[in-house]
Amino acid sequence: MDKNRSPRISGIAVTVGTTTTLLGLLLGLLVHGTGYAGTSTGLPQRDTATAPPAEPKKKRKPVATSISHGVQKPGPGSAGESAEKGEGKGAGRGEGKGAEKSRTPLALTLDDGPDPTWTPKVLDLLRQERVKATFCLIGPNAERNPDLVKRIVAEGHRLCDHSMHHDTGMDQKPVSYQSKEILDAKRMIDKASGGAPLRYYRAPGGAFTPESRKIAAKNGMRPLGWTADSDDWRLPGAETIVGTVRQQVADGARIILMHDGGGDRSETYAALETLIPQLKQDGYAFGFPEA
């Protein structure tokens, strides 16, 4: 072999001196255990510090206004027992032959009507399902649709004053304005219904004030809140509406807020077609808010 040629190892040309130097350096690294990023392996290591665990997804809570009430037992002779107290025995009239002896009462409330398109459809459905509800009426809507108001009363449902103009900021307005919103609507509803009992007042968007409660009480109306908000006005789809209400009811909500007026309520109607039978099957009955 030519003395001037370098030896080849696996096809790589190296000099003897260089090879010796490299071997020495490698031995030194192994002895001292020093490698990349301070590790003994000489390989990059993934940071083993764990990140804080993600917060669990919060359960959706029932939405409530500053006022919330119990629910009367359905059927005649109700004394206004509160569902929150675990009362409400008896399936009530119209729950079918297979109704259980003890059911948890719910109150279905429908806002912003009466509407000439959707209120009749909802009333037909309620009659078919033998369910009673509370209709929270806008004064001018009642004035324009007196026959619907009378039908609501004739079919055994209850009425609620929901103001004149659905002003969700009325709690920031003068007391004189609040009074006019409540009492002008009451006069229109009273005239449309022929003087039927008007048991409740629901502030638009839950905008109650101490003064508005006093005005309502002085005129024989109890402030009516809600504990299950369907969010149907957002038009999320019937399936979502059903799921939203059932979840809140399962969490303990007893007064359901939905809408039969104020716009296209096709999703609300479709949701009610599914929701009412499902809630009955889940062991609930329908009554009225305490009055």
Rank of each mutant, 00 (worst) to 15 (best):
H259C: 11
R46F: 14
V245W: 10
P116H: 07
D47N: 15
P223C: 07
I189W: 04
A64Y: 04
G11F: 02
Q281D: 07
S176C: 05
H165E: 11
I276D: 02
I9G: 01
S179K: 04
I138N: 11
P52H: 10
P289Q: 02
E81I: 02
R46K: 15
T21Q: 12
R246V: 08
E143Y: 11
Y177Q: 03
K3H: 03
K180S: 08
R151H: 10
P289K: 01
A228Y: 10
A185C: 11
E267Q: 12
Q172K: 13
D161S: 13
T50M: 10
G194Y: 12
V175N: 01
A49F: 14
D251Y: 14
T117R: 11
D231Y: 15
V131Y: 01
S179M: 04
G11I: 07
P120G: 06
V245L: 07
K214W: 07
G156S: 03
I152E: 11
T19F: 11
L30W: 15
K61W: 13
R202M: 08
M170F: 09
A142S: 06
L26C: 12
S68N: 13
E100A: 09
T39M: 04
G75S: 08
P52M: 02
Y201F: 15
E273G: 06
P223H: 09
T50K: 14
Y36D: 12
G17D: 13
P53V: 13
N145L: 05
S40F: 08
R151P: 10
T268V: 06
W118T: 07
E87R: 11
L126R: 00
R265Y: 07
P56R: 14
T34W: 13
L159E: 06
D167H: 15
P223Q: 07
G220N: 11
G156V: 05
Q278L: 05
L22R: 10
A107C: 03
V153I: 01
D260Q: 12
I138T: 15
G42L: 09
K280H: 09
L30D: 05
D2Q: 01
A217R: 15
P197L: 04
A217P: 13
K150M: 04
Q248M: 06
Y200P: 00
E290F: 12
G92K: 06
V31F: 12
I241Y: 02
T134Q: 06
P236Q: 10
A142H: 02
P56W: 05
I12A: 08
T65M: 03
L106K: 06
T274H: 05
P289C: 05
P74N: 03
D124Y: 05
P140H: 14
E143W: 14
D147N: 11
V31G: 11
G11M: 00
S266L: 02
I189G: 03
R158C: 08
G225N: 00
R103Y: 01
P210I: 00
Q281R: 14
Q178G: 00
A291C: 04
F288D: 02
D260W: 04
D147I: 03
L43K: 13
V153S: 01
R103D: 04
D190N: 08
T240Q: 15
P114R: 05
N4P: 08
R222A: 04
W118S: 02
M1Q: 10
Q247Y: 04
K61D: 00
D2I: 00
F208R: 06
T268E: 06
